[in-house]
Design a protein around this nucleic acid. Structure first.
Length: 257
DNA sequence: AAGCGATGTTCAT
DNA sequence: TGAACCTCGCTTA
């Protein structure tokens, strides 16, 4: 499921379409008009910004947001698409199928610019974290809410926010203004590391893995410190859960202050 | 078979 | 603040 690392990984895989003329279709029928516009255009660029995927086809911009349930997968260009496929992009060599997106739309240049303008710095784009530091340390909103606000930081989802706050011993309920600048910068660095690893591995794993553990055999669900855990994996205390920023916050009342 | 929640966001009230 | 929407898989009946 998609946080920023999923989209950046996907954008990397989709580079194989750059320079290719693609056939576009909407087997599901819910993007028929858009597919008609895109059909037979050449892909000029594919990029991820936070959780947003942008596919530029000449003067046309395709915007995809996977939401909670969306996915894109590579498939056989000669086989039939599954019925639920919103958009299929096909070359003679490969087909890419988009399923269950929350957004799949065409943007003009102005709308594309406006979309990017409302996103904060993205740890996976090598952005300057200074605006994040300023936004968090000047806000009375909780740091847990701020980390999920895509205008503050782009690409963070509920796993990364809860895990990074735990790794830095910070209670999600603290106001942003109570967080030291160096702590925000340190969290940014952790996010950069964790998310980059997520791009490579295709899933979210914890910061540390014992040296004797083969990471490929690790069950992803068992590797978080607090997210969806009964007990804190650092100290064993029961994990506290509550609603914060419209999502479930998970935190250790002992480790996180 | 039905219900619900989920690594998400937008729109209506 | 609540509902809606995208889909699927797990839980409950």
């Amino acid at each position: 499921m998609p946080e920023g690392h999923t989209l950046h990984r996907l954008a990397g895989e989709l580079q194989e379409l750059v320079g290719e003329r693609v056939r576009a279709s909407s087997p599901q029928g819910r993007f028929t008009d858009g597919a008609r516009v895109v059909d037979n255009r050449t892909v000029s660029a594919v990029d991820a910004y936070g959780k947003h995927l942008l596919v530029d086809l000449e003067a046309c911009h395709l915007h995809v947001h996977l939401g909670l349930a969306g996915a894109m997968f590579r498939s056989d260009p000669d086989g039939d698409a599954k019925t639920g496929v919103r958009l299929r992009l096909r070359t003679p060599r490969v087909a890419w199928d988009l399923v269950a997106p929350s957004r799949c739309e065409l943007l003009d240049a102005g709308a594309r610019t406006a979309l990017l303008a409302r996103l904060g710095p993205d740890p996976l784009r090598g952005d300057d974290p200074s605006p994040v530091v300023a936004a968090i340390t000047s806000s009375e909103r909780t740091v847990g809410e701020l980390l999920l606000d895509q205008a503050v930081v782009a690409g963070i989802g509920n796993v990364f926010r809860n895990e990074v706050l735990h790794l830095h011993g910070i209670d999600p309920a603290r106001p942003g203004s109570s967080i030291a600048e160096e702590d925000v910068r340190a969290m940014w660095d952790t996010l950069t590391t964790l998310m980059a690893r997520g791009v490579v591995e295709g899933r979210i794993l914890p910061l540390e893995t014992p040296p004797d553990v083969d990471r490929s055999t690790v069950d992803e669900a068992d590797t978080r410190y607090v997210y969806k855990q009964e007990r804190c994996r650092t100290c064993g205390s029961p994990v506290r859960t509550w609603e914060l920023g419209r999502r479930t916050a998970y935190a250790c009342p002992v480790c996180q202050r």
